[in-house]
Structures are given as structure tokens and as C-alpha cells.
Design a protein around this nucleic acid. Structure first.
Length: 639
RNA sequence: GCCCCCGUAGCCUAGCCCGGUUAAGGCGUCAGCCUUGUAAGCUGAAGAUCCCGGGUUCGAAUCCCGGCGGGGGCUCCA
């Protein structure tokens, strides 16, 4: 190694650097003023010269620097003598010679070059750019290959990295079993599928508007950003909390009916737990980390951990399979990158119904997946999301498809519309097959709602076993299903759909069972408030399970109607002299309304109205009004 | 993380480019009038550290620099 004088260079692509020579540290120091020097948008080269006497290294270094400047599109450098990179420093006199040579050669190479004074104690402030290549540490050796080291940044799961290398093959699978490469498929009549396919494959995304549902979620006092929390953690106003809670109840009820056992598990887990750490690396997500005493915990991003650990400890017989376990996670956490967060569509804290099913073998798993596909469609239906509102994607490995063609086709057949297929050459994740329903919004963005997966790894990873017919312990296959997707995302989809309805001239609204106020009673003047209250008493009788309120504010009738309409209230009952005398109600029915046209007023008896609402909400959960009944008693949360 | 946009009263917005009286308007709130017949009745009042810090200037919401917060996009995705 004699004759080799390595350079150690820390390259930092910076927004700016400010440095100020404070005092000379050594006798050989250069002459310099003490004024602060500031340079912007440049690459700073913290450089130390190590023991040796060979100057040829400089040429190599300049080559390397040029390449780097090209890559990061910069054209200016600052050579900043920085002794702390080495424990084997060259003599100052020699080091200065090398640095000057480096400066000269860099200039010769056409680089705008600055150099901080050598031999001084300097103070500096630096702002480093955030792109992946902004920080590089190099050791430049004259006779050998340069050593590249990247300073360690954030801990990224292996799965997240692996994902970057996945090669996907895209097809459209028709209900009749015909599989067509996506570029050959005729999308006429399948506009949403086309948008979804493009969104998934092309990665071109243009849109620079606030998503319609964000405006609506605020205006309707459903939810809002919470500036006092981490981004992606929402606040829920009374109306939103009610809607969310009803949806949660409904999904839970459906899953329990399907045969799942509801459980509850912790929100945080030991980062060092062996099974968890391993799984962690198979799941492409970023986490919140919580420190407690001297341990680190990650906040769960699904219910898998808790349920798997529970199943690990359970005694299970093959006779009990498929065994279904369910939890509604309030909350699951994923520390999505800040630029990815969007309204209720993509959050850092969200509520995820998560249902696992342990299956004895693939045949049982396939049967179960089919049941859960149906369960998911029924569930979405209750939120007013029909098959026309979402698209199916099925993703699997090539091997799985070869051996299970019929099964895959049967899923698409059950769905009834062509589906987007993504095929992989080998298994990257813990599952061999996964399907999702995807909603396409008004900005042509697609997001997954319901999903199910066939997991071939975690039974083993978590040591989950059942005892088979022969008395032997075996690992089950595990299905992971969310029949609705995140609850917040369901609300997002409903709002986006309502917005689209409005564009098409339909009055936007929630399904009646989810409307925070189902009937508003409006007296024509203050004189009729007592009559209005009496009607509200009768409509709102506990046994009717109807949410009624009364607009008792001293406003004009028109104004009160307008506000009720803007709140998307399904039934508006106006009470005046005529109603009091006749006993017949004058009802505005939102479901029959068209935007911009005068409303039709239906004459109905109170009993008929109660019946109609009961018909609309049959079989759905009910919760009482989440706000004071009298509008005059209500605060305004937004606007 | 990067790029782009935004930050003015509880909400929405004007003013900013081109610096100059008490920062303008609408919604909402409060008070009063009106007592209302199916999507905005009238009058009045209160309400603003113009995001924060620095700089330029006789003078900054306005120009410059830095920071903070939010949104959107990029990459990827339950």
C-alpha cells in the first residue's frame, strides 16, 4: 500500500452552506479573512487527505466528482478541508498541496470551484437536499476501485426494497375465462376499468386540485384535518363519528354472521420479537415507532400481529377449520410519506376491519376466498356501492395461475365484469394470490376497498399449528380479508360517489341508514315550533329508530329548507297551519330530487313516513341522533 | 425526502405582480326588526399577531432571505 494517498470525501448536495473562519488552528494555515461566506445550490466536498505521497489520486477524484455533478445536475463545488474524516491524516503541508491540486484540476475540468481555507477552525451551517443521492461518502484510491458507502438513513423494510424490483405482467381476465394482455383489450363500455388499469400500470398522475371529498368532509362536518396531530390523523365531528360508527357496526355484524370470532389485540408490538421482525420485512410499509423504557415498539399496521400471536397459543383441530378471527382495528397505523396523504383516502391512522381465516389446505382456502368475495360485495352494497362503482383486480404468481386457472376465473365470473390481472414470475410477498376491489374517484385515482389474500408463509413464521386427522401438527394457510377496506376509505368512496351523482344532476346523499339526520322538521314560523316538536316527538319515538331534528331557529322557511338540503337530509317535513289542521305531512324526499329543479312535495301521513324510512333502513344498525335535537342548540364546527 | 402551489377574522375570498390613509367583501356568529309556505328577508355590531423570524426601505400583507404549517404531485401501496 505504499505510495497510495487516499482521499476521503463526503459529498453533500446542498441547498446552501454558510461558513465562517474563526481562528487558525495550525501554523501552516492559509491566509484568510474572517467574514462569513455563503454559497447556494452546490455540492460540498468535505475532504481529508490521508497519509501517503501520491497525487495521482486527484485526477481520479475529479473524474468521480464530475460524474456525480452530472447525476445530481449541479455545477458548483466547495472543497471544504475537513480533518475529521480520517484517523490517519497526511501532513498538513502535503494535504494542502493535494487540496490545491484538487481545486486546480476541478477548475480545469470546467467546474465552478470554491475552497474553504485550510488550517482554520471554521463554523458552518449546511442544508442538505433530500434526494437519495444527496449524501455520498467516498474513499478515492489511486490504484484501486473507489469504495462507495451510503450513509444509513431510515430503516426500510426489505419488502419495501424488494418491491422496487418486481416485474409485473398485466392482463384483463373476462368472466368467460378469456385472458387478454391489457394492451389488446377493448375497453369500450369499461371506462372505469380502463382508468384503473392505467392508474396501476402507467404511473402517470396529473391532478392538482383538492379532491372533492375533502371539501365535502369538512363542509358536511364529517371529519377534518387535525393540525395538532401528525398529518393523516383526523378529527371526527359528531356527524362523522356517527356515520363511521354505524359503518363499523355493520361490517362487524356481517363478519360475525359469516362466522368470525371478534377479538381485540394491542396496538403496539415489540420491534425485536422474532416472528414480528421477520414479518415486518415481508410487508411493504413504514411504521410509527414508540419508545417505552429501553424498548422500541411499532404501532400495528394491521391486525395480523395480535391475531397471529393469539392463534399461535391456541389449540386447534382440523375439525374447527376454517377458523375465522376478526378485529376492527381502531386504529391501524402506517407512516405514509407526507406527500402521499390525502383526505380520507390515504391516512396514517385508519380503522381497518381485518378478518383472518385459517384453512387446512388450498381447496378449503379457495372455497373460503369465494365466500369472502361474496361477503365483500354484499358489504359494499350496504354503503350504496354497487358493482358499477368498483373494479376487481386479481394478483398472483405464474405458478399459482397455472395450477388454479379455473378458480381464478370463477372469481371474475362471480364478480361479473372483466378484471385487471397482475401476474408475477415468483412470490415476492407472503401471499400467492390477492384480490381487491378498487374505487376510481373524480380525479381518476384508484384505491383499494375490499381485499383478500392467500398467505402461505405466516402459519409457519408464527408457529401457528392445527392437529390433522392423523394427529400430526400442520401449519394452516391463512386468508387475510378486509370486507370493506378501511372505514375512512369507505366514507371517501361514498363522498366521491355523491359528488359524481351531483355532477349528473342527482341530489347527492348518503344511504338513509347512514344519514346523520334522517328527518328534519321545519316550522314555517316560530309560532309552529311546538307543533313541529310534537311531530318530531312522534317520529323520533324510540321504537321507530329514526333520527329526527327540529329547526327552531328564527330564520325564513326558505333559508331553513336550503340549509337542510345542503346537509343532504333525506326527508324534510314542513309544519304550518295546513299540516296542523289536516294532520297530513308535507314531505320533501331527497331521493326523488333533481338538482336545479323545484322539489316535489309529497303528502304523507306520519305513519306512512315512518314506514318508508323503516323500509329504507331495514336490517341496518341504528344509533340515535349524535347532536342536540334543536338546531338552535348546536354549535357549528366548520365554517 | 424532492418538486409545485398555498398561508389575510370561525369559514371562503379580494388586496400582493406595480410598497403609501382606519386591510375590503361574502358566509357564519351576536343583537334587533320581520312571523315567514318549500334552496340565501332586512338593519346593525363584534370579530385580523395579514403564519413566524430576519433583511431592504422614510414606510412592508405587498419586495428579498430563512423557517414553520397545509395541500397537491413524484415513487410506491394495504
Amino acid at each position: 500500500m505504499s505510495g497510495v494517498k487516499p482521499l476521503r470525501i463526503l459529498q453533500l448536495h446542498s441547498n446552501f452552506i454558510e461558513y465562517k473562519p474563526v481562528e487558525k488552528e495550525i501554523e501552516e494555515a492559509e491566509e484568510s479573512g474572517k467574514e462569513t461566506c455563503r454559497l447556494e445550490d452546490l455540492v460540498v466536498l468535505f475532504t481529508s487527505v490521508e497519509e501517503g505521497d501520491d497525487e495521482s489520486v486527484v485526477l481520479r477524484a475529479v473524474e468521480d466528482i464530475k460524474g456525480y455533478l452530472d447525476t445530481v445536475k449541479a455545477d458548483r463545488i466547495l472543497i471544504y478541508p475537513y480533518a475529521h474524516l480520517s484517523s490517519n491524516l497526511a501532513k498538513p503541508r502535503e494535504a494542502l498541496k493535494v487540496l490545491r491540486e484538487l481545486e486546480r484540476r476541478a477548475r480545469e475540468a470546467g467546474i465552478e470551484t470554491y475552497r474553504a481555507p485550510f488550517g482554520w477552525c471554521k463554523q458552518f451551517t449546511i442544508s442538505i437536499k433530500g434526494h437519495p443521492l444527496a449524501e455520498q461518502f467516498k474513499t478515492v484510491l489511486p490504484a484501486r476501485e473507489a469504495v462507495k458507502e451510503k450513509p444509513s438513513g431510515e430503516v426500510v423494510s426489505k419488502a419495501l426494497k424488494a418491491e422496487e424490483k418486481i416485474k409485473s405482467y398485466w392482463f384483463i381476465l373476462q368472466p368467460d375465462g378469456k385472458m387478454v394482455p391489457v394492451e389488446e383489450f377493448d375497453f369500450s363500455g369499461h371506462g372505469n376499468l380502463e382508468k384503473f388499469a392505467k392508474y396501476e400500470i402507467s404511473k402517470v398522475r396529473v391532478a392538482m386540485q383538492v379532491p372533492p371529498h375533502v371539501t365535502l368532509m369538512k363542509r358536511l362536518e364529517i371529519a377534518d384535518y387535525e393540525p395538532g396531530s401528525d398529518p393523516g390523523n383526523m378529527r371526527w365531528y359528531p356527524k362523522g363519528a356517527l356515520i363511521k360508527s354505524l359503518i363499523e357496526d355493520y361490517v362487524t355484524r356481517k363478519v360475525v354472521e359469516y362466522g368470525a370470532m371478534e377479538v381485540e389485540t394491542p396496538v403496539m408490538y415489540d420491534l425485536q420479537h422474532p416472528s414480528l421482525a421477520d414479518y415486518f420485512n415481508r410487508f411493504p410499509a413504514r411504521q410509527y415507532i414508540v419508545k417505552s423504557e429501553d424498548k422500541e415498539y411499532f404501532l400495528r399496521f394491521s391486525a395480523c400481529f395480535g391475531q397471529f400471536l393469539m392463534m399461535h397459543d391456541a389449540q386447534i383441530s382440523y375439525r374447527q377449520l376454517p377458523l375465522r378471527v376478526y378485529e376492527l382495528t381502531r386504529y391501524s397505523f402506517r407512516r405514509e410519506k407526507s406527500g402521499e396523504l390525502s383526505g380520507l383516502r390515504r391516512l396514517r391512522a385508519f380503522t381497518m376491519p381485518d378478518c383472518h381465516a385459517l384453512c387446512a389446505d388450498l381447496d378449503q382456502a379457495k372455497e373460503e376466498v369465494m365466500r369472502r368475495l361474496r361477503l365483500s360485495m354484499e358489504t359494499l352494497e350496504a354503503f350504496g356501492l354497487g358493482r358499477e362503482d368498483y373494479e376487481l383486480a386479481v394478483r398472483f404468481t405464474r405458478d399459482f395461475y397455472r395450477e388454479n386457472k379455473e378458480f381464478v376465473t370463477s372469481l371474475v365470473k362471480e364478480f361479473g365484469k372483466p378484471a385487471l390481472i397482475e401476474m408475477w414470475d415468483r412470490q415476492f410477498f407472503y401471499f400467492v394470490l390477492k384480490w381487491e376491489f378498487n374505487f376510481v374517484d373524480n380525479l381518476d385515482k384508484a384505491s383499494a376497498l375490499s381485499t383478500d389474500q392467500i398467505d402461505t408463509e405466516n402459519g409457519q413464521r408464527y408457529g401457528i399449528t392445527y392437529v390433522d386427522e392423523k394427529g400430526e401438527r400442520r401449519h394452516p394457510l391463512i386468508l387475510h380479508c378486509s370486507p370493506s377496506g378501511a372505514i375512512e376509505r369507505v366514507i371517501y368512496a361514498m363522498l366521491e360517489k355523491a359528488y359524481r351523482d351531483q355532477l349528473n344532476g342527482k341530489a347527492p346523499m348518503f344511504p338513509v341508514w347512514l344519514s346523520p339526520v334522517q328527518v328534519r322538521v321545519i316550522p314555517v314560523s316560530e309560532r309552529f315550533i311546538p307543533d313541529a316538536e310534537k311531530i318530531a316527538d312522534e317520529l323520533g319515538m324510540e321504537s321507530h329508530r329514526i333520527r329526527v331534528d327540529v329547526d327552531d331557529r328564527p330564520l325564513t322557511l326558505q333559508k331553513k329548507i336550503r340549509e337542510a338540503e345542503m346537509e343532504w337530509i333525506p326527508y324534510i317535513v314542513v309544519v304550518g297551519r295546513r299540516e296542523v289542521e289536516s294532520g297530513v305531512l308535507a314531505v320533501r324526499d331527497r331521493q326523488t330530487e333533481k338538482v336545479g329543479e323545484p322539489a316535489e312535495i309529497k303528502k304523507m301521513s306520519l305513519k306512512e313516513l315512518v314506514e318508508e324510512i323503516k323500509n329504507q333502513t331495514r336490517g341496518k344498525p341504528f344509533k340515535p341522533l349524535a347532536l342536540p335535537r334543536a338546531l338552535s342548540q348546536r354549535p357549528r364546527f366548520f365554517g
